[in-house]
Design a binder for these strands. Structure first.
Lengths: 212, 212
DNA sequence: GCCTCCAGCTAATATTTATTAGCTACATTA
DNA sequence: TAATGTAGCTAATAAATATTAGCTGGAGGC
């Protein structure tokens, strides 16, 4: 069990280094040093440097599948979504959105993995795919599915999703440079307040309005 | 003059490679191969690999200063801005915004530089600064300056800027994965149409309204 | 208390890679 | 045309770095 412990520590420290410097700029020796062992000892746990990287990705995808179960806003086909969530109240979207944001900024593993994705997105098509899925077009499509039932066309739904998620997405970058968690969360709140008001135009005032 | 030509080609090809793989993962030999010369010949033009990188950054900052002059929406202190542009019509913002977007996606040098910035932002504080300045908080602050004269508080102005620029920022990522220039531009247009309508709430209907 | 296993170590290897040394051919200039 | 400078080349170097080989000490089961 001490073995598995070190193996996990290697994974975590490697991710920490990869997320700042990128895969190539990190040496096996640096990873080893972060775990307070010597470089060759790494190979008692992983077959190669690449194997560490792949394990990180595998670990993330596993963690994500488990996490998906915890949130009641489920995955599924667009049709099922539109059917099941004809009228999701804005407050539910708010809670979900803030949880996602905290997940990708405060959860150590996920936060580092997000940065790693951005650093490797142009080299590795698999990383590009995950980058979209987790952080850009994925969330947009997800929101579009929700807005589809409230709007007159797919294009409108997609556009609404863009308006909704764009500011959130931008706040990841703002957060990375300021580390101001509460400021970012407050901005998300104000954003959703405004968006709620704006959305009333599109349906019969179901959304709970915020201030202003 | 053949010399300066090769020097520029090295710069361009290096940037192209850096923007995909990141600085560390690119070898001098790769850069040389892209220019169809041998690696040691690089050193007739640049003192080191790092020197190429630094020259790219210097070149970008120089190009940017010249470019800033061409656009009449000027830089300056917030006070000057608010004074001079009490009522910028939305159409002017639209043109400027689309020009910026095309600049960072279609202009070969700028497009590659944008990717390079995202790849190096966590390692190099200077790159982090530029990344913010050019792509995230910079544009937000810029728009906030414009919206300040139309809103009741700085916080509101900043929030409006976030709502305005967030979707644009997200579209950079969407664009990177789809390469759909016209789709992205159409989305920007629809976004600004909506935003114009939305903004009418904040002032006496000065903004030109779009559809919907 | 002995045996086995294995995580960690040191030493070695093979490859990659940035950079330098020194040569050559061509182009420009006097 | 002779002289010169220089962009390119090949060959060499020195450092870094992923990975392997082989040893060791201690922990857990018998």
């Amino acid at each position: 069990m001490k073995k598995e412990d070190t193996k996990q520590r290697i994974l975590a420290e490697a991710l920490k280094l990869f997320s700042v410097n990128g895969y190539d700029a990190v040496t096996v020796e640096q990873v080893a040093a972060a775990v307070s062992i010597k470089a060759p000892s790494i190979y008692k746990h992983y077959r190669s440097k690449r194997d560490i990287f792949d394990s990180i990705v595998a670990c993330m995808s596993e963690m994500d599948m488990e996490r998906a179960k915890e949130y009641e806003m489920p995955e599924g086909t667009s049709e099922e979504m539109a059917e099941a969530y004809q009228d999701i109240p804005m407050e539910k979207i708010r809670v979900y959105t803030k949880a996602m944001f905290l997940h990708w900024t405060e959860e150590p593993f996920s936060s580092d993995f997000r940065k790693l994705l951005t650093l490797e997105q142009y080299r590795d098509t698999e990383m590009a795919r995950l980058c979209q899925q987790y952080l850009s077009t994925g969330p947009v499509e997800y929101m579009a599915d929700i807005f589809r039932s409230m709007s007159d066309s797919d294009e409108t739904a997609w556009q609404l999703a863009l308006e909704f998620y764009g500011p959130i997405y931008l706040l990841y970058s703002v957060y990375d440079s300021t580390q101001d968690k509460t400021g970012a969360l407050a901005a998300i709140d104000r954003h959703i307040d405004r968006f709620s008001v704006y959305m009333e135009r599109f349906r019969g005032g179901v959304a709970k309005a915020g201030k202003s």
